[in-house]
């Protein structure tokens, strides 16, 4: 009990710490520089404040309006590579942030019962609008120390085996499963290979295909290849507006096919990694709109959108009996792919 409160408190604290320091600390991306400059001006004017003779409030309001318009215009024509930058934004809300907002009584459950607990995957039980739900999500770190501890959100086999354990538990207690996807990929290290990374991922895919409980996945940030898919097979796939999902990172693809990681922008475009493209291909059931400037500008609002979408889709899936649900899931999965006879 005590521990839970402690973690909750740190969690709140980290949000305040990262988001409460004013707009200057929003860590603007390259293509946001014009916005950053405007925001800097606004901040300067605020500093000048009341002791100046001219009325500054009007000017601040004008610049704020301009900044919002500029943000809107820049964000209305983002390329795939820019969207990938937003998906990887260091202040983007992560699984624990979302859980803090919409499942405040979340209890984290640890360990695969075989080898270790993998902090790159967070899992446990919570309530969503009063109903019990099994949550499983990748978790990146907010600061350097946590990033290292969570291995940048790259799970090892024990992470996937923990997820499998949670999924079976969810099935046993008739709880729907919600997975939040946000990983650069599965860990490509020596230990992961020794403990059977391939088998762990393959087995997750196998398990999710036949699990007798609803599964909804939301890509909240980076959907990195097999490491993402391993908790992403189910009845619904939702994507945040500025999330990406791809078979290999744009950098990886570029260095293999273009022989240069600098062609990542081209690779990102070619692989159609954005929510919009993936919806066109029929992979994504719903795109969840983000606050202006991205989820990190207003995490609470982003969480509210995710929460409502989850409730909506859970309610839809509730209407199916389990056999129907599985039949539809199998049909859905079998339909992946395009070929000619």
């Amino acid at each position: 009990m005590v521990k839970r409160f402690t973690t909750r408190w740190t969690h709140q604290y980290s949000l305040v710490g990262s988001l409460g320091l004013g707009r200057m600390d929003l860590k603007f991306l390259d293509f946001e520089q014009p916005i950053a400059e405007l925001e800097a001006k606004i901040e300067e004017l605020r500093f000048v404040g009341d002791d100046s003779e001219i009325s500054i409030n009007e000017e601040v309001a004008r610049l704020k309006g301009k900044s919002a318009a500029l943000t809107k215009s820049i964000f209305s024509k983002l390329g795939a590579w820019q969207i990938a930058q937003i998906a990887r934004h260091p202040m983007r809300p992560y699984t624990n942030d979302y859980l803090g907002y919409f499942a405040p009584d979340f209890q984290e459950l640890h360990g695969d019962r075989m080898y270790a607990d993998d902090p790159a995957i967070v899992s446990g039980v919570g309530r969503l609008d009063g109903r019990s739900v099994m949550f499983i999500g990748h978790q990146k770190g907010r600061d350097t120390k946590e990033r290292v501890r969570r291995n940048y959100g790259m799970p090892k086999p024990e992470g996937y085996r923990k997820a499998q354990r949670m999924m079976k538990m969810a099935e046993k207690f008739s709880m729907p499963i919600v997975t939040l996807i946000d990983t650069p990929g599965a860990d490509p290290g020596i230990g992961a290979e020794e403990r059977g990374q391939s088998e762990a991922i393959a087995h997750s895919l196998y398990l999710m295909a036949g699990l007798r409980t609803p599964i909804i996945s939301v890509v909240i940030g980076e959907g990195g290849s097999g490491g993402a898919l391993a908790i992403g097979v189910g009845d619904r796939l939702l994507m945040l507006q500025y999330a990406v999902y791809s078979v290999i990172s744009p950098e990886g693809c570029a260095s293999i096919l273009w022989k240069s990681a600098e062609k990542a922008e081209e690779a990102a475009e070619a692989m159609r990694i954005t929510a919009g493209s993936l919806e066109d291909f029929g992979f994504v059931d719903e795109i969840l709109p983000e606050p202006l400037g991205g989820a990190h500008r207003d995490p609470a609002a982003a969480a509210e959108v995710v929460r409502n979408a989850l409730l909506h889709h859970l309610e839809q899936l509730d209407r199916l009996d389990i056999d129907q649900l599985l039949e539809e899931r199998q049909r859905r999965i079998a339909g992946f792919g395009q070929y000619k006879e």
């Binding site: 991922i201 393959a202 895919l205 196998y206 398990l207 999710m208 295909a209 036949g210 290849s225 097999g226 898919l229 097979v233 999902y245 791809s246 078979v247 290999i248 693809c253 293999i256 096919l257 070619a270 692989m271 159609r272 990694i273 993936l278 291909f281 992979f283 199998q330 999965i333 079998a334 992946f336 792919g337 395009q338």
Partner: peptide, 24 residues
Amino acid sequence: ARMQEALFSLLQMAKTSAALAVLG
């Protein structure tokens, strides 16, 4: 996976595993 088919190819992992689950 075949990069040139991007997410289509990634999802073949799910598809083939699901077919094996039925077989199982």
